[in-house]
Nucleic acid binder design. Structure first.
Lengths: 190, 190
DNA sequence: CTACAAATAGAACAATCGTTCTAATTGAGT
DNA sequence: ACTCAATTAGAACGATTGTTCTATTTGTAG
């Protein structure tokens, strides 16, 4: 045994996430990751198998600690309608990773991705949609939404509006515009 | 005078559009364009100033002869509701450029674009939104939509749903799913 | 038929990409 | 203190990028 690892892998994942969000998968170079993480090529390739391997782990990190964690927290703290509104608004108000869109959304726009990557992104999408379905059903039990409506349909609508919103966020629409869009998406649920 | 141009520039723009739609701006190489158009680097750089110049002209071509032309035709032939439905469905049913998403949508997801490109894409988005607003107002005059509703809001909703749909199309959701999403977007307008 | 410039083809350029390799450094176990 | 393997840094590799350069071909005007 000698020379224990001098950096926290999770921390690197968070840093890399920021870079991937800003530049996208294929246009992010290892040089970018090196600069952001202050690690050398040697260290990076010692810790991660390849650029693709690093990205896959970043996606998993993102789904778990950004997307799902955020949804849970908002819904738990504020209930369905206000929680969804806060979640939608976090896409353009959040300081940490805000205004960059969603890692899954921007990745799905990239061409000729490896099958493994596609599967990982698909999985992420399903998790988000499933979360939406879950909170809709919860809201129906609470009486916040009528039990007569189809939760699948509502979840789909939520998901599509969310994706549309993210495109507009990425594209730099004004906060006022994005707020109106959020309102319209929520109005459909009343 | 000698040796007149042996290829049609518009034809090249159409071919290049197909490549850019499949691969995105930054990941499309001049080699790709060469292969698709069967032109040499010399010819391409004789006709177009640079890769960026070519792309700008492709975007203009796309807005005019694909997006706007398609909207006009569907609305003219089928009226508002069926027209919008057909237009939405063309994003995943059209054989020519279908299933690739929208050139503007996928470009807006790309990082660090030149200001000139950003402006061109922004312009395209505005044109689409403006077209939506125009056909909504037209539908209000026809009585297809209540005159009491705010056409700007409806156009915004249409635009956002359209962008969300395009993300899902690009991502390979099933026709059935996409049709449901389209229905939900239209239901909001009734 | 000759001359000439527009148009073309393809080799060559520097820059950047992801990745690998080789040393040098590090610190715990003996 | 010495050993030895885990870890690190950074040079180097071949492949690919957008672009430029140099010939060569081409068709028409005189």
């Amino acid at each position: 045994m000698a020379n224990p690892k001098s950096f926290d892998e999770t921390e690197v994942l968070g840093t890399a996430l920021g870079v991937f969000l800003r530049k996208g998968y294929s246009r992010t170079s290892i040089a970018d990751i090196k600069k952001a993480s202050r690690l050398s090529a040697g260290s990076l390739y010692f810790a991660f198998e390849s650029k693709q391997d690093l990205f896959l782990r970043v996606v998993a990190f993102y789904i778990r600690y950004v997307v799902v964690a955020r949804i849970e927290r908002y819904i738990h703290d504020q209930g369905f309608f206000d929680g969804v509104r806060s979640y939608f608004e976090s896409t353009f108000k959040n300081k940490e990773y805000g205004r960059c869109g969603c890692l899954l959304t921007i990745t799905s726009a990239e061409p000729h991705l490896d099958d493994v990557v596609v599967r990982q992104v698909k999985n992420g999408f399903q998790i988000i949609e499933q979360e939406f379905r879950r909170i809709v059903q919860l809201a129906q039990e609470n009486g916040e939404i009528s039990r007569k409506r189809d939760p699948n349909l509502i979840a789909q609508h939520l998901f599509t509006s969310y994706q549309g919103l993210l495109v507009l966020v990425r594209f730099g629409k004004s906060d006022r515009y994005l707020k109106t869009v959020t309102d319209a998406a929520l109005a459909y649920l009343r």
